[in-house]
């Protein structure tokens, strides 16, 4: 249904391969699958098109010459809003759509073959369409327009808008840590949270290495825990979690074997007792298997 209309009406839908990563399984009919089949007329230079969920404000802020949103060309988009005005002519219907971020004109060309009833004012509707500028005014050329029948669509749309923005930002910053989601959500109840990490070192002079038991890492990272050499070697063995002992941790025999030559078996037992009394390690499947608490 969709590809028919797209081909006949707007002519905007070129090739397939819509690059959307939003799972459209929400019952809202917004399945990416239905866009994925190649249109009937496959152009020679196949463009990769994507359907972007946007707010109307974003659409209004698009540059008419370079429709660029967070580094991605906007071709096809989805907007959702309330119809404030309807203007019906013989060839087209012009709606004014408002989603509280802004209002924009949406043009729907009428198909002479199918009799379509124009939507009423005060209908919440979803529009799939393309961006056009006509005599300096920004418009959406609707390919498909449907009334919202379930208010969850609105919520889903808002989530998709946020998700798309985050995904695009991540695409832009990929390689530089990719910590977009983190940075955005980290500010919690603290209000105007300046949650950016400070890189400056807090001076902790003369305190050894207090990050020892938190920082993670190999060798000498335990200087801050005040452990003896024997306890340290035992703790190091327990901290290294290998795949074959993921859940149960290391057995007493395994630890003894690992530190053989360095620490006597009796010392291993003493160290294990000390470490578990201090809460650095705990026993798992039985009293002879240990795991580190900070792992």
């Amino acid at each position: 249904m969709w590809s028919d209309q797209a081909a006949g009406g707007g002519g905007g839908s070129g090739g397939g391969g819509f690059n959307t990563s939003f799972g459209g399984d929400d019952g809202a009919g917004y399945g990416t699958q239905q866009f994925a089949s190649p249109g009937p007329e496959v152009k020679k230079n196949r463009r990769i098109e994507s359907v972007l969920p946007l707010t109307i404000n974003t659409v209004l802020e698009l540059d008419e010459n370079n429709q660029d949103y967070l580094g991605t060309q906007v071709n096809m988009m989805t907007v959702m809003g309330l119809i404030c005005e309807v203007d019906v002519t013989s060839t087209k219907v012009t709606y004014t759509l408002d989603d509280t971020t802004g209002a924009i004109k949406v043009i729907k060309w009428l198909d002479s073959e199918t009799e379509e009833e124009p939507l009423m004012e005060n209908t919440y509707c979803r529009v799939h369409g393309t961006f056009k500028t006509y005599q300096g005014a920004k418009q959406v050329l609707a390919l498909h327009l449907e009334p919202v029948t379930n208010l969850n669509w609105v919520t889903a749309h808002i989530l998709e808008v946020v998700h798309a923005a985050l995904q695009l930002q991540r695409l832009n910053t990929q390689g530089s840590g990719g910590g977009v989601g983190r940075g955005t959500f980290a500010g919690d109840s603290g209000g105007a949270g300046n949650s950016g990490m400070s890189n400056s070192m807090v001076g902790l002079g003369g305190m050894g290495n207090p990050s020892g038991d938190m920082g993670g890492g190999g060798g000498g990272a335990f200087a801050g825990m005040g452990l003896t050499a024997a306890q340290k070697s035992v703790f190091e063995v327990i901290r290294t979690v290998s795949d074959d002992c993921e859940d149960s941790g290391h057995s007493r025999e395994h630890i003894r074997a690992k530190v053989k030559g360095k620490v006597a078996p009796q010392q291993v037992d003493d160290a294990l007792f000390f470490l578990s009394s201090e809460g650095h390690i705990y026993t798992t499947v039985d009293e002879d298997h240990f795991r580190s608490t900070d792992g």
Partner: peptide, 21 residues
């Protein structure tokens, strides 16, 4: 981390707070 302990200050009457290292 010992070198990056943050502090989330209490909110004022405008419900504004601040997080500082």
């Amino acid at each position: 981390e010992a070198d990056g302990i943050m502090f989330e200050g209490m909110m004022d009457s405008w419900r504004m707070g601040k997080v500082v290292p």
